[in-house]
């Protein structure tokens, strides 16, 4: 079905604690495309990523996000993930006591439909024995080791607790590792470049480039143009004050780099700045 190949956000409005942050965002991503979403601090970039993934603090007041004929905004976060949506977090959570490998084994099993029944409930009805709904250990470990090697993550990370004591670069690589294992259809990467030195940035960018292809659509959220030196977007959007004010090709990112965000700010009457709409 044609609709399976697009992720279509229409007129999305989102409030956080009563304050409207996104004021009508529309955006369509096709599989195989990489879209960059750029904008200054406070423009609503992370709000968009959190709302699309379904964080309960971000209330959607209007709009739809259609995918496979479903409005994902009506689904709980876990169901969105199992449908193939993925968010690489700007600030991944630290969970002491949960090892990277047992977490990933559960996540992969959920994504592949082993952990969950069709109606979304945890399986099965009765008592479950540890491991019974999970991907077999051997198979999982083989896959995990392969993907970790590709991201230059030492295999000792498997038995470490999730993000506990990890450096910024390690956390971001573990996010990309999750993306590699979960094999999403649409991925949102929220400031995956922030806090990375140049070597870590290259590793992460290589990882993303390896994963993207005709079967995945990507929304790359970034503050700086730097990441776009390593991951080439097809489309660039500029988000200012909760609205997309410009959409263009990769050249738009260079334009931003040269003149900063100020020139893109909409004027007080709600229209766009004069030079923001080329004749």
């Amino acid at each position: 079905m044609a609709m399976d190949n697009t992720f279509e956000i229409r007129d999305l409005r989102v409030s956080v604690e009563g304050k409207e942050i996104l004021k009508g965002v529309s955006l369509t991503i096709r599989k195989g495309e990489i879209h960059a979403l750029m904008g200054p601090n406070g423009s609503g970039k992370s709000t968009l990523s959190m709302a699309l993934m379904g964080h309960p603090l971000y209330s959607v007041t209007n709009g739809t996000a259609l995918y496979k004929g479903l409005d994902v905004l009506g689904l709980p976060p876990d169901e969105r993930a199992r449908q193939g949506l993925f968010l690489a977090f700007q600030y991944p959570q630290t969970i002491p006591g949960l090892t990277v490998s047992s977490f990933l084994r559960m996540a992969v099993s959920a994504r592949r439909g082993l952990l969950v029944r069709a109606n979304g409930d945890a399986r099965p009805d009765g008592p479950r024995r540890p491991g019974q709904d999970l991907l077999p250990v051997k198979e999982f470990l083989r896959e995990l080791k392969e993907k970790m090697a590709a991201l230059k993550l030492d295999s000792s990370f498997m038995s470490r607790h999730l993000n506990d004591g990890f450096s910024g670069g390690e956390k971001k690589r573990v996010e990309i590792l999750q993306m590699a294992l979960l094999n999403p259809e649409f991925a949102i990467l929220d400031e995956t470049d922030s806090g990375l030195d140049i070597d870590a940035l290259k590793v992460v960018a290589e990882g993303v480039n390896r994963l993207t292809g005709p079967n995945m659509g990507v929304l790359l959220i970034t503050h700086y143009q730097r990441l776009l030196d390593y991951i080439k977007p097809h489309v660039v959007h500029v988000l200012m004050d909760g609205r997309i004010v410009r959409t263009g090709g990769p050249e738009l990112a260079r334009e931003l780099e040269a003149q900063g965000y100020e020139g893109f700010r909409p004027s007080a009457d709600g229209g766009e700045a004069t030079h923001a709409t080329p004749a």
Binding site: G54, P76, A81, L87, Q93, R111
Partner: peptide
């Protein structure tokens, strides 16, 4: 939220 965003149902 983090765990649910990876596909784990709430109970799990």
């Amino acid at each position: 939220f983090y765990l649910m965003s990876r596909g784990l149902p709430r109970v799990e």
